[in-house]
Design a protein around this nucleic acid. Sequence first.
DNA 1: TTAATTTATGCAGACGATTGCGGTATCGTT
DNA 2: AACGATACCGCAATCGTCTGCATAAATTAA
Lengths: 343, 343
Amino acid sequence: MKLDQATIKDLARELNVSSSTISRALKDYPGISDETKRKVREMAEKMNYRPNALARSLRKSQSFTIGVIIPEVVHFFFSTVISGIEEVAFSKGYNVILTQTNEKVSREKTSIDTMLANQIDGLLVSYSKETEDFEHFSRLLEKNFPIVFFDRVPKLENTLNVTVDDYQGAYAATQHLIQQGYRKIYHLAGPKYLSISTERARGYLAALEDYGIQHQPSWIIESPRGNENEAKDITTEVLKRAVPKPDAFFAHNDMAAVGAMMACRELGLKVPDQIGIVGFSDWQFCTMLEPSLSSVAQPGFQMGVRATELLLDMIDKKGNIEGPKNSIVLETELLIRKSSQKP
Amino acid sequence: MKLDQATIKDLARELNVSSSTISRALKDYPGISDETKRKVREMAEKMNYRPNALARSLRKSQSFTIGVIIPEVVHFFFSTVISGIEEVAFSKGYNVILTQTNEKVSREKTSIDTMLANQIDGLLVSYSKETEDFEHFSRLLEKNFPIVFFDRVPKLENTLNVTVDDYQGAYAATQHLIQQGYRKIYHLAGPKYLSISTERARGYLAALEDYGIQHQPSWIIESPRGNENEAKDITTEVLKRAVPKPDAFFAHNDMAAVGAMMACRELGLKVPDQIGIVGFSDWQFCTMLEPSLSSVAQPGFQMGVRATELLLDMIDKKGNIEGPKNSIVLETELLIRKSSQKP
DNA sequence: TTAATTTATGCAGACGATTGCGGTATCGTT
DNA sequence: AACGATACCGCAATCGTCTGCATAAATTAA
């Protein structure tokens, strides 16, 4: 069970040199003869030596591991972010330890605790929907612990964030609906305390304003959980009772958009003929649906990449008094498909 | 940047006792007075002491961390497995470090290496599509290193596996199509060297045989990558040229099923009226499609749970000469939706 | 030939937590 | 008064790796 790996000491004993020599030879330090280095390397190969990362981390008090906190892996968007993160981290010799919070603050906190206990060098965070108090983050930030937030960013001063331009994405989506001739455009919004939600709502409203579309507060309907069933129920209600009757929906995510689509289908309303729909995130299934779902694509992989680059940068220049913190905002792309194009 | 955490020594200095006492007090060992324990706990609280998991792991040569290797997080199925894994692991005080191979053996190997360097106590593996040689696993298995394979299991002796009953699931799906009156049932198969693929193909064939359906080898078409575009192309070809013309498809996964559905739509063939379709895995989008896609559901969460339980069990009874190895096969469930029900 | 360098290696003490083995009080017993 | 039993606690080594400092040998300079 325990695979008794050879240690530096074993190599030392075998070659009749000190463990310091082994250590230095393996790291190709100066002051060790080429001959010795060669012998050490050969023996290491022969004995199948693998360094003990724990011991190394303990000694150097740096673990070369970063922690990643995300709400849920099932979300297509987050899974692409993960790929981006791993890509950069691995290429720079860092390990990634990942946990999902399942949208629970409690899990978020314990995860951070165990990650810290494991001496992670930095943290990438997209916090849970439940998180309204950021004390468990600010506590770390005060001590200058490297954290980069992505997608969902906290209302804190002086944090490094990587987001997409939710405002712009929402604006473009809404603008597109308007240009297609839709007028009574309702918005299926996300939870109010998530920055991404409010940004998307802002963009939506701005577009309506800019195009002089008369609207009412009741056009924004919260669909906090953002899954298709919830959205379907809500949309059905709206389609039945709301005045004026909506002729389009801009949803804060694709699941909600699908919910709206399902509601329309059940009520015999044709998409896109009678009702236009645009979602957000460009999940895989968008192109599978009939009609295919227009959506605002977010560069998940890119987000992972940029966030990790930022974080590793922070970690590297530890001593360095932090320069100007440059948060990053990535562009979105509106993908126009059938669900929002009037024939 | 470095959040100079208080160590046991700091507590010891502060309280004028030895570090051994601190260690024992915190672990509530006998032989330490209640008074001392109280003081230690208070001081630990006050100084915000967090044990250094690395040091502990090094000393105990056990890291309380398990490694998880999966092909891709984007796969709905795997993301649910992950949740099951985390659930059990966390509840038993284990950490999880996860990496995706992106279906590449090379990544698989390096991941295992760094995980071992980090002294993981065991490994949960679903290997990549590229993996045809299992030497990097058998090497570890020989040394009795705890590994549990899930979903995709290797052709090796004496391994612990957790799978779903792919054969049965495929059989049920095919049987269902037959009972609905479909006769020319083609199979969109996965890569031949994946056990899950061959099992599903076996179940499919068995059902055809049992119901006395005449069939040909050409009815099984490989769609190795298993995504919707590949499957769509393949299916289009088949629908145009194959003799006899298929009246149903049983796909080895849902993406391929969607591809088939898209092909039918483009060729003006009605699902389920003219063509019946059943997929595998029950991705989220199955219910979103029109017509909704029948699929064989796999208990991903359960699989994660059981696999982790098995693994932790192995880890616990390390010394124990292993008893009979009991692999686990979980039941699938055929979810009948519109795509396979003749009107 | 001797002193000054250079080159190659070893010693020993961290890093933080754990633990076997002892040591010192304190108290009760005979 | 002397002894053993308890109850508490400390010493020191250990896990595997790294590294500042010292040391020895080999080389060069003077």
